[in-house]
Design a protein around this nucleic acid. Sequence first.
DNA 1: CATAATATCTGACTAAAGTCAGGCATTATG
DNA 2: CATAATGCCTGACTTTAGTCAGATATTATG
Lengths: 294, 294
Amino acid sequence: MDSIARVRRFNRIVTAEVGALDTSFLSRGRPLGAARVLNAIGRGIADVAAIRDELRLDSGLLSRLLRALESEHLIELAPSPQDGRRRTASLTQAGRAEFEAYEHLSNQRATTLLSGARDASPLLDAMDTVAIALGRDRIQIADADPLSWQATSCLADYYGELNARFAAGFDVEKSRAPDPKRLSRPNGAFLIASLDDIPVGCVIVQALDREAGVAEVKRLWVSTTARRQGLAKALMDAAEQAAREMGFRTLRLDTNSALPEAAALYRRTGWTEIEPFNDDPYAEVFFEKKLSAV
Amino acid sequence: MDSIARVRRFNRIVTAEVGALDTSFLSRGRPLGAARVLNAIGRGIADVAAIRDELRLDSGLLSRLLRALESEHLIELAPSPQDGRRRTASLTQAGRAEFEAYEHLSNQRATTLLSGARDASPLLDAMDTVAIALGRDRIQIADADPLSWQATSCLADYYGELNARFAAGFDVEKSRAPDPKRLSRPNGAFLIASLDDIPVGCVIVQALDREAGVAEVKRLWVSTTARRQGLAKALMDAAEQAAREMGFRTLRLDTNSALPEAAALYRRTGWTEIEPFNDDPYAEVFFEKKLSAV
DNA sequence: CATAATATCTGACTAAAGTCAGGCATTATG
DNA sequence: CATAATGCCTGACTTTAGTCAGATATTATG
């Protein structure tokens, strides 16, 4: 079937649905513009310039919207302490309550949408796939706390996938699990790719031999909903960059033949196969890459 | 991860994308409202009341938008022949060209959107899944021409799935393929469930023994992107209804143990297992259902 | 310290969208 | 056939969104 027709059907149907989203923004008797500004402030966007940037509003228009919210006693405006020309907006108590009311409406809408399906998870996966494909350009890779929920959730998904892919399953206990304490710079890093705070992939860099300048790359994972977009490559590039920044000159990694696309990526990007450098029961193939200078 | 957060991320990202859709509607220097009306008329929505209904416009507002399009010589308005109070809109030649220009922009946008992905098909499947879940209530089941592209595409997908599911594959040639000539009422029917003209499932009813009032149900198929929403049940209900309307009192069908969810549905909905009634090589289990009166 | 640059606000606009009470034909109904 | 109902139109509004040229206050810079 024609793929353009499919995209357009998607647009048509989702436009109608998103129109309903606007009504939830309108249902509290406030114009859309004012509701959007209140929302941005509630989400922590405080500087007037930042709001203008986020919502792409004209300076004059935003000024008036802010005054309207101020006269409703929902927000307060104060000059920025750093720069007296700038102004910073914050929610009053009433404003916080109003913001929460909008949040509640949005959550309700999301719940209603899911409640129709007998099993929501294929729908959620499909939504993730679409959102990630459309928001591709906004995916950011950054250092993360290895104990954060984002990191934990990435690892859980990674282990789940290995368990499904390996003929004999995967048991974290048998594997050389990364030590959170060794995952902060300059000894290592837990890098997470995320879209709007939701993780879509990760990779770990961890010192193997500090003196020799050797580090190891582990836990390269990309969400099933974010694949085929070059994200694994971007994560590996970020890992190499992080390793260079921490002063490592050589990277090593091990992998398993049940993950052929990973090995293909390594071979494609300058890694060469080497002799085993550990006795991890799940490690079958070993790679090394010499890093060029920063 | 929190499913509500996932739905809201989807909404956020898709809203931005759909905003871009508006710009394509605006890029021809016509207000959005007028462009939407032109579009509706181009899509065949002719009656003024129908346009009002489709676009949820106020009678006065639409009247003005129509006049604006008329003064641009893009549309013509004429009283309806059936009812002199009603008016019917149609595109002039210039209007048709303008409509096509909008169509071209929309198609281009769809193409751009797809061009980012290395492999568009997971994205397209995800879009279908989302669109079908959101448009669930608008799915309609109707008789179709067995030679139409919709019917052909349903059967092709059905055969493809059997081929993937059966250990030994599936060869249409070996199966008792339905005869298009026997698929029009009162001898049979090819029912298709579709959303916005795009097929999402099908089922066939075909006479087995006219005198005895026995018909057969075949080719029950639901698109992978439309499953778990009760569509198979709706198609079977429609098939039973069609059979009743054509005067059949008994329905039979055969199925294969590689399709356990189908057999489960039949058992759940009043079908009972019977002795084989044909020698189709792919038929392993046979069912029958007596139809109650209309 | 004068001047330029920056950040926001104000006033005076316009365009687009939407609302609503009536008006005028046309059609349905007792 | 008179009356009611229907379908659309008109005029007179309001609200929302958006634009833009200054005004004002503050901060940076030579």
